[in-house]
Design a protein around this nucleic acid. Structure first.
Lengths: 211, 211, 211, 211
DNA sequence: CATGAATGAGGCTTCATTCAT
DNA sequence: GATGAATGAAGCCTCATTCAT
């Protein structure tokens, strides 16, 4: 059965890797579209492979979901790093915020998984930490440039972007403007001149207060 | 038919009604905690009744979910009407915003179901309309008092409160301050003096622009 | 509770008996219409009583079905005894045959129960025996008058009537003539002049060969 | 996709087909024995497979029942076509009648489902039409040969065979002769010399009167 | 005693996972 | 290694039966 050709090992491994990527692509699309409760069959179908192949690469649906979240982290880190690099810090901040929210919005899997502990529980903190590490310089640069109030943390920005993403398509379908207005409001609320001091028990962010 | 006490029917119905309430209570808690995908058995168990009892009152799981959403609407309307009635419009607005977000946070079922239409699709518009009707006077009073920017609609406020609720307990457990800071940011963003005009295609809200 | 009036025992017993009859009436109608798989609730509803009352009179759905079958036996015996009493034996036979088939046709409960052992297993032989006892004189009189072949038994006639009933309304709805033609064919087959001798292993009926 | 034997798909499908046949066999037996209300588990068990396998082949219990009915049609058509092909028309008619009745007797599901439309409602007319088409030449040949009265239709014969099947094994176990005698009676009733003209409203069958 | 609410086992169906091909 | 058929636990729902009122 396995004896096919001399270099089959190499060829197969390449094939396998390609298959893994296809499954992951499909999973991201389908989880993003239908949420984590979607069947594995749908993912296999979208990927154009059999379920068995999915399970060969990812022993569990959970593992697949985790991998999607991890990859989403990769993509966000990359995108953040590539977004509006040449713009002034304040504008860059706004652009990155949008990028983040749009990414989140396109992945109900993530939103749901972040909300419920049920899915990818262990990956979430890692995910958040990575995104935070990517975001922090952007936030700090904007704060340094006076474009963002100094008492918010990167985690706050991430939380707000995630929250705002709930109002973006495809989550909200009826009123496309809703998400734009909401983003605008949140960004306004992040300006220094709008800042009402945070309540005491919410404490201003010390440099190491994250998490 | 036979000669029995006149109120026996009433007593039975009282008991049944009590049980219905228990089921609804349990459903609100469990749906709120675990989302709409939770099993009916879990709800029956939480309510301390058999599954059959649940199905006697609510012929379908969907019906139960709808009833929870409807009841949530009741509660929100009541709570909004009772929140900070004597405070000045601006303060009242802030308090109501918090009320709304906390209610939403306690019912992920709603956040999920309202945003994806998968659940209780017909109830959602009704629910939204009711909440909007309850909120609009509060928003308009605050706008009249100069405490809230004039170009946001009640639906925007509801959307933002719903979004922000993602960051409130019991969802986010690690960092209680996150939710307080996020709320603060959003409220700041809603002040008139922070307002950046909304982008054109998001359209400024006319006085009667509601949905 | 039970202390109401002095003659309550008598009154109640009368009431109870009336209720039992109502339940039985309803059961016959509903079983006959919808088959034995129909829910007890439907019977209680038809009877205008609560399920509890049904279960007070008949500890089990099976018991109720058995009672219906028994009562059907009563009715058939009565009807047979009352059918075309003054007609000549041959005509009376035909009329009784029709009566039997129509009764059967109106009671899917019986047909199903007779077919499957599942229901009323013990009642069936009793039922059959009673019907046979009622039918035998009619058959024998017709045989004596030369209107029916001599080698059929009463059980054969019962079987054929039951079988033919499958083709009567409400079982067969599309073609009302079907049942009439089928009955005609069977009755013709029962005439002496049509008789092909029964095959050997089906043996002509000895006087005590029944069952 | 990858390089595998060309016929692997074929082999898989062969296995699946074999399993499908096993499920169908089992369903025919079990439905035939216990009626359409029997549990799917019982069928799966009889087939020696899990319930999931049943549902892979037949998305619904109804579908399975329909398939059984369809297959029964196949079998009847085949059997009729193969029964006593060389015998004279009259004898062939008798043999076919028996074949039909025995087949029906082995499938109470059909008798029940065909008469009440509760099951596989759409398949029933198709089934009936197929059986009728198979039977009509046999009936007409026998009529042409003077072995069967000319005023019966193929549908009448089918109805009578179905009805008579109620008395055949395995339904009636106690008295094997009953079914033989009943068959004999019905066949006698179908002879031309026994014929009593059908009552008017049952209409004599014109040559093309089929349904 | 009548009522109908409560119960929970059992039926149909889905889907994550395993395994023969 | 890929495939998709097989598996069976678990979910939704029904209904025969019991029990509080």
């Amino acid at each position: 059965m396995t004896v096919v050709e001399a270099d089959s090992g190499g060829r197969l491994r390449a094939d396998a890797e390609r298959n893994r990527a296809r499954v992951l692509d499909a999973a991201q699309v389908v989880f993003g579209r239908d949420g984590p409760s979607v069947g594995v069959d749908a993912i296999a179908c979208e990927a154009g492979v059999g379920v068995g192949t999915v399970y060969r690469r990812f022993p569990t649906k959970q593992d697949l979901l985790r991998a999607v979240i991890e990859r989403l982290g990769d993509q966000i880190v990359e995108e953040v790093a590539a977004t509006a690099t040449d713009a002034p810090p304040g504008e860059r901040f706004d652009a990155v915020f949008s990028t983040l929210a749009v990414r989140y919005a396109g992945s109900r899997a993530l939103v749901d998984a972040v909300n419920a502990d049920e899915a990818g529980a262990e990956e979430i903190p890692v995910f958040r930490a990575r995104v935070e590490r990517a975001l922090r310089p952007v936030v700090e640069a904007a704060q340094g440039a006076g474009a963002v109030r100094r008492d918010v943390r990167a985690t706050d920005v991430i939380g707000l972007a995630g929250a705002t993403s709930l109002l973006a398509p495809p989550h909200v379908t009826g009123d496309a403007g809703l998400w734009l207005r909401a983003r605008s409001v949140v960004l306004d609320g992040l300006r220094p001149d709008a800042a009402t001091p945070f309540p005491d028990d919410a404490g201003p962010a010390g440099p190491d207060a994250a998490r």
